[in-house]
Computed example of a mutant assay.
Amino acid sequence: MNLGSIDRAAYLRLANATNAAASGILNIHIDNILEALASALGYRTWASLNSKFQSDPDWRPEAYDHFGFIQRLYELMYAKLASRIEERDLPDEQKRAMLVNAAANALATTEATAVLVEGARLDVSVIRRPPEQQRADKYLDVAYDVEATVRGIPSDALAGERWFLLPEFSGQRANDVIIDSNFDFRVELAHDLTVTRDRAGKKLRTAALEGGVWRGGLFVVAADQAEEDSRVIKNVKVALARAILPPLTRQVHLRVFQPDSYMAEAYRAELTYGPAALGTLGGKPFTFDIDLGGSRWIHAPKDGLTFGRDGNPRGLVRNGTWAGEIYPRSGPQTPGLISITAARLKILEAAYRALQVKPQATAA
């Protein structure tokens, strides 16, 4: 389906199909999907786009703005999460930490949903191991087998550096819920980019699909109540969907993570243009704006850095990839330090805007 020339009936089918695909793996509402799709087609609201469809049945949108979808859905998701946090009677410092986490979760949900719009589908099964496999004499946790299967995407979306970070959990249950990969699904990065659980140097968090499948284990301390068991499984499915789906986009993916060896508030950034995004560029190198301004800056190696006519730094994309590091300008306590999620959004927008001719999207 060409998303840039969609009619009203196809639009509603796409929104409903995306919502159905998200059910059980992402916390998102059909209303938000409708609004974000409208934004991608150049309308601020679904109401205004629907009015256009109904008043002019032969009219078709001219283009589909992938970042427009991401930006609008993120705004809606974050606003909902933030309002819930602001209503709570909590210390300011705790609220700030929760808002930072909410922003990261909203963006991850948004990017995962965008991949569902492209046609990907994800099934996650979490099955409690039988009593004879629990080893209660040795371990305090309850073990589950976890399998994630991706469907509905071309094989080129599974090629290349499509690894993901296994989720870690925050809050009171941070150390009580652990996800680990089976051995064959673990990914070892270069030593200086290694990411391990709690940055402790052991138990890799880097994982990858094999033939569209990932398998691992879930280990939960004191999972002895049915209600608690169900809640944990739901949260694990959501966390895995946020981790697995975004790297599978055929458009633009920006991976930002913190290797164990990096200082506080320093991050590795890796940008990948998928086959659909590169379709109009003919394989030629191109540049995008990497000037974050304010309290963060980006360092890139010489072969990934150039300067525009205005003297500002620009990332140089070769063969559809670019990598660099994001640092605070002075230190982790820099006043007004923008969140890493805000920095990610700024880089992602620049990366999409560098595609002067927007690529055509496809959806199931």
Rank of each mutant, 00 (worst) to 15 (best):
E227V: 10
A47I: 10
S181A: 15
P246S: 11
Y64D: 04
D92M: 11
G311E: 02
V187T: 06
A200W: 00
F219C: 10
P285C: 04
R318H: 08
L76P: 01
D89V: 03
E265L: 05
E349A: 12
I340N: 04
R151A: 08
A174D: 03
D180K: 15
Y262D: 09
A106K: 02
P359Y: 03
A226M: 06
F219I: 02
L73V: 01
D198W: 13
A241H: 03
R314Q: 15
L99E: 12
R242K: 13
A200N: 14
T18A: 13
N312S: 15
W59Q: 08
L41H: 03
A323T: 04
V317W: 02
I85L: 11
R96E: 12
L355M: 08
K302E: 14
Q54L: 14
I233C: 09
L292S: 01
Y267L: 04
A300W: 01
R121K: 13
A223W: 03
A363W: 13
D58L: 12
L12A: 14
D89N: 09
D310G: 14
R205L: 15
L193Q: 08
L278W: 00
R318N: 13
H191M: 11
L14D: 01
R44S: 05
L34M: 15
I290Q: 03
G274K: 08
D192Y: 07
P285V: 01
F219L: 13
L278I: 04
L158A: 03
R231K: 14
G279Q: 09
L355D: 05
D224V: 15
T334K: 06
Y43K: 00
E93P: 00
Y11Q: 07
A361I: 02
F69R: 04
A342N: 08
V115P: 08
L26D: 01
F53S: 02
G293D: 09
L204E: 13
D176G: 13
P247R: 07
P154A: 11
D184K: 12
R268F: 00
R44K: 13
